[in-house]
Design a protein around this nucleic acid. Structure first.
Lengths: 202, 202
DNA sequence: GACAAAAAAGCACGACCGTTCGTACCTTGT
DNA sequence: ACAAGGTACGAACGGTCGTGCTTTTTTGTC
């Protein structure tokens, strides 16, 4: 049982790569087996079903995301610095990541939005948690008096996530070399609007 | 040749629906034929290849997007009102659209970002044009003195698109009932930041 | 080193994939 | 009314898909 767990992890690692470019549906057991120099059936027996494989891949992606983006950001100071760290690491995670196809969670979000099933449910769960996490960081920034008290945490989380999605689009589809700069500028503008006191209505 | 064109259009119409939920890759000729009560080979002969079908579907989606979102927005006054019209119609297009799976162009953007080929190239082309169109509208709003002269049009276009992507995510994956409200609030904040005079640096 | 358990392979399956081909039908222009 | 040709069909192709079985190989334990 030692060895089995090891190959299982090795498989999942390469499955993550494959799924990041081909999508969770496009991830095929045959090709994954070929990549790992083993038989389809041998590989299959580790997961029991394709859905099982997808769920495990999703779980691994989530774990990696947490340890790459979230956990290290906790070492930044509470409030705005931490939000800044979250954003920066999130952007980094999207491209310089070992995954050739960008963030699997983002790709899966678009892919599974109309595909009911356990995989979609698991993904929704992860994404909801992430939205909550972001909102919580915003609330902390309000407590720390970095942000105005009337900043709407879920709205700020929405805006932050939106910028990242825009970055993903510009960077990965359009291959726009300005993508990073634009995303950072949009982020700074968002921070600015949360920081400064309320504007006089026009 | 009359009849052929008619069925071709009928096929494309249902192909658009199917592709909006299944994606352009998931769109299969067999299932499309079944849906249209005709044979695979009969349907196939209209497009010559799957890639041909995908390109035609993409073209139809683009045409529909233009006539639903862009063209009517031109009737709004130049400047901010037109940008507002663009945004509103864009949001509408995403859900209340006849397409059950949301905006095909957005879904395809995430799906094809790592799939080289003619389909991807065509999509990139469309998306680049759209980004240019948005930036042009922003430039007009500057000319009309609705926006400050130092507003960066491509950046504003990026931010606008990002909000729409955020909406797509929140609405279609998370089924968040607040999605619309958040997107509109984010949009208003974006407008506000483009309108009001430059803030004092903090 | 024997033995049970775990892991991987081998093989086969039915279903569906995109595609080709030959052949009918049916619409169209004259 | 008729010929021409556009349109659709049916069958078949080589592949790949996910998924079961059975058998063989490898592994860890006494």
């Amino acid at each position: 049982m030692r060895k089995g767990e090891a190959t299982r992890e090795r498989i999942l690692e390469s499955a993550l790569e494959l799924a990041s470019t081909e999508g969770l549906t496009g991830l095929s057991i045959g090709r994954l087996a070929e990549r790992n120099a083993m038989s389809k059936s041998g590989l299959f027996s580790h997961f029991g079903s394709k859905e099982g494989l997808q769920l495990d891949v999703l779980e691994l992606a989530t774990a990696k995301f947490r340890e790459t983006v979230f956990t290290p950001a906790l070492r930044a100071d509470r409030g705005e610095p931490r939000i800044r760290a979250l954003f920066t690491r999130w952007l980094d995670w999207i491209d310089h990541q070992s995954l050739p196809g960008g963030c699997l969670l983002t790709a899966a979000a678009a892919e599974l939005d109309d595909q009911p099933g356990a995989t979609r449910d698991a993904l929704v769960d992860v994404q909801r948690q992430w939205a909550d996490t972001l909102a919580r960081s915003v609330r902390i920034a309000i407590e720390e008096r970095h942000f105005r008290p009337d900043v709407d945490p879920p709205l700020f989380a929405f805006q932050l996530h939106a910028i990242v999605l825009g970055y993903h689009h510009a960077r990965r589809l359009l291959r726009d070399p300005q993508a990073g700069r634009r995303a950072r500028e949009a982020f700074e503008a968002l921070l600015e609007s949360a920081r400064r006191r309320k504007a006089r209505s026009v």
